[in-house]
Design a protein around this nucleic acid. Structure first.
Lengths: 223, 223
DNA sequence: ACCTGAACACCGTTCAAGT
DNA sequence: ACCTGAACACCGTTCAAGT
């Protein structure tokens, strides 16, 4: 018999397997708990084995971020630009809810991966094809992504509660917070949120719509 | 002579001195390099001495973030709400340029400090007094902060270059990037940025204005 | 070729000990 | 009352050694 695996229990490591396991580990444990050593343990391997496949922590993070970019909706479809952008915006928010560790990272990697480049190209293409000038397309891209990533940042903090859950949270928070007495408008917020809750998805779509409709108005009123 | 300082060289530690030194250290070295041990060294003291004054790393970060909130412009002034909000928005961006380590942290601290609460109360108050309904004021607050913090996040990545510097950067980046050939719209971006550069301040104010003017339109057209 | 152990230079934090 | 040293349980990463 020719060359045979001596320890057959574990599948051989590969770059793809390391990256996939890294994303899964970060999804489960969060960014704070994610480490090379834990990832090694998760794969049943010494931490140093990883370095034969991924170069280092920073390079691995680059790859993980590109996995998330790969999950975003491609706006190149032939719909009108507003619904194309709305859908891709919603898909970014949803991807960042699945992968909260990616929130501060999507726009902070200094060497973007292929999925990242392809997505940026597709968004810019969608806007240019819709008739935006170059300057306007840059503005439109900037304001959308600022809103989307900023919203994701805030939502990450406030948690993934449903409207009902956040109403309950606000109610119990209101009890102990005597320190709020100097802040009448914050008391109103707590009281109203305790009544009706806070619907993150609805808030996101309200903001995204305002931005897209304003951009569409500008697009229509230009040469 | 009564009780006298035995080691006079170092001023005595205090909560305030620790917090101020922490902000200064983070400003200089960035979030990545900031640590309790380095802060101790900076203050000429063992790392463990800090724990008599600040409870721990997380509590210290809470206090540092509240220092930044204390630097924001108070929108309670009696101007019209649009310029009040515009000014406070600009002041948030500027504060986050002075303190880039605070970018992911402003909206992610789970127990807000007094400056944080006072600022939120003032913003909400400004919007309510301007005639926004409670629901609309929440929308208006959410979309503004999403945009502002998201913009700061992106700007932090791209660096604090002047328009001229970023033009130069885009030019040299364009040379080596043969991989961009599949992405025609990205090539356009690189080419245009190499010509005109990218003015972060102008981009920020364009986006903020679009949001504020859209909100003002909604406010005027309501009961 | 692929993986490992020991080591290095770091973390935050606890706790008993010093003054 | 305030600070320290040694220790614990972690990091990312290098490098010589194993198979």
């Amino acid at each position: 018999m020719a060359k045979e695996r001596t320890s057959p229990a574990r599948k051989a490591l590969s770059r793809e397997r390391v990256i996939a396991a890294a994303v899964a580990l970060a999804d489960q444990t969060g960014y704070r708990e994610f480490s090379m050593r834990r990832l090694g343990a998760e794969l049943g391997v010494s931490p140093m084995a990883l370095y034969k496949h991924v170069g280092g922590r920073e390079e691995l993070l680059d790859e993980m971020v590109d996995v998330v970019f790969g999950e975003l909706e491609d706006p190149s479809a032939r719909e009108d630009w507003v619904t194309a952008m709305r859908r891709r915006g919603v898909s970014v928010r949803e991807a960042l809810r699945r992968h909260p560790w990616a929130v501060g990272l999507m726009e902070s990697r200094s060497n973007p991966g292929p999925e990242n480049l392809a997505h940026h190209n597709a968004v810019m293409g969608c806007l240019r094809e819709a008739g935006f000038s170059f300057e306007m397309a840059v503005h439109a891209y900037s304001i959308q992504d600022s809103f989307i990533y900023g919203f994701a940042l805030q939502e990450k903090t406030m948690g993934h509660e449903s409207p009902e859950e956040s109403a309950q949270a606000a109610k119990t928070r209101g009890k102990g917070s005597d320190g709020y007495n100097e802040y009448p408008y914050l008391i109103e917020v707590e009281a109203e949120l305790a009544r009706s809750g806070y619907d993150h998805a609805a808030e996101f779509e309200w903001g995204l719509s305002l931005i897209l409709e304003s951009l569409e108005r500008l697009r229509k009123n230009s040469p």
